[in-house]
Design a protein around this nucleic acid. Structure first.
Length: 328
DNA sequence: AAGGGTACCAACCGCCCTCTA
DNA sequence: ATAGAGGGCGGTTGGTACCCT
């Protein structure tokens, strides 16, 4: 038996939203909130729209503080980093970019960012507003940032660490003797990638991100950490409060449910000036032959993405249903 | 100027997860 | 324990604007 449709398809309007509909939805939600029931909302608001459509419209467009327009280099960096770490988990990536929606990031990745990394778009084909104006300063060699110090005191390229970690993860996450304990390097590939460095600790049941500026920034001085555990479910704890939240709460909506300064602590890969400012796009708006905004060489990024895409990355890979991330 | 190709992005679709009765 | 309802997510599609020939 098929699932019942969420709304009467025959009686709902589809397609682009009119300004009047936008205003009606916005006004209703600002006045009454969503009431925790999107399905019933359109009727209450007097809209002939599917509840899901209302939700999407609100989250992606009407909600306050939505940021539209060009993505910054820092945002590019974060997207690339997280994509290389967790794959196409757009809602999680969006959670790290306040004001950006998962849909926005997904579109941006699919239409632009991927091409910046993998393709070459002739300048002449770019629309004027798409052309980035890069600083003319020369790019430093990225090669010095490619080394990852794994536990066996050898250095690996990120891709090597990934495959290394995957191997240890898939055999046994808690096998800390695995030659490549650089889960931290993957989640937070050390200074070279995203600077405000988090410290990680491997536990029997996973990797814990400890302290560090980004995770100890709450006004009450309490610390917040992220722990990646076996079963990969999100938990949030702040001092006495320990709250388990679903993976889905750890998305756009998380910001509205948890105080902003707390949610910021979820940052696995924080933004800001990470000492990579020397990595510039070439004047054509693309990254050069070898460098990327991440500080990776282009080939390393490609490899990272290829490697992690194929298995959907270390943290979240395997069974989505079992994902748990511990957050302290 | 017109037609075809391409890029972009808003919106939809369908699946999965969680919650609740 | 189970089934249904609703929410959330990622993938995909369709419309539109822009560019090239």
């Amino acid at each position: 038996m098929g699932r019942a449709p969420c709304c009467d398809k025959a009686n709902v309007k589809k397609g682009p939203w009119s300004p009047a509909e936008d205003a009606q939805l916005k006004e209703y939600i600002e006045k009454n909130g969503t009431g925790g029931n999107w399905i019933a909302l359109p009727q209450k608001a007097g809209l002939r729209r599917c509840g899901k459509s209302c939700r999407l419209r609100w989250l992606n467009y009407l909600r306050p503080n939505i940021k539209h327009g060009e993505f910054t280099d820092d945002e590019d960096r974060i997207i690339c980093t997280l994509f290389s770490s967790i794959g196409s988990r757009w809602s999680i990536i969006a959670a790290q970019l306040p004001g950006r929606t998962d849909n926005d990031i997904k579109n941006y990745w699919n239409t632009k960012l991927k091409k910046k990394l993998f393709g070459r778009v002739p300048q002449s084909q770019k629309k004027p507003h798409q052309i980035h104006h890069a600083s003319p300063s020369p790019s430093p060699s990225p090669s010095s940032t490619l080394l990852y110090n794994c536990s066996n005191n050898t250095y690996h390229t990120p891709a090597t660490c990934f495959s290394c970690f995957e191997a240890s993860y898939s055999s046994s996450f808690s096998n800390t003797s695995a030659s490549c304990l650089s889960a931290a390097s993957i989640l937070q590939p050390q200074e070279s990638l995203l600077a405000p460095v988090q410290h990680y600790q491997l536990h029997d049941n996973g990797v814990q991100m400890l302290g560090g500026e980004a995770s100890c920034s709450s006004s009450d001085g309490s610390c917040s950490n992220i722990q990646i555990s076996h079963n990969k479910e999100l938990e949030y704890s702040n001092g006495d409060h320990h709250q388990q939240i679903g993976m889905q709460s750890y998305s756009n909506s998380f910001y509205s449910e948890v105080a902003d300064d707390e949610s910021q602590k979820l940052i696995m890969a924080s933004n800001g000036d990470h000492g990579l400012s020397g990595h510039q796009k070439s004047p054509n708006g693309l990254w050069g032959e070898t460098e990327t905004p991440l500080g990776y060489g282009i080939e390393e990024i490609k490899q990272l993405i290829t490697t992690t895409s194929s298995c959907n990355s270390f943290v979240f890979y395997e069974n989505k249903a079992d994902e748990k991330v511990m957050y302290y």
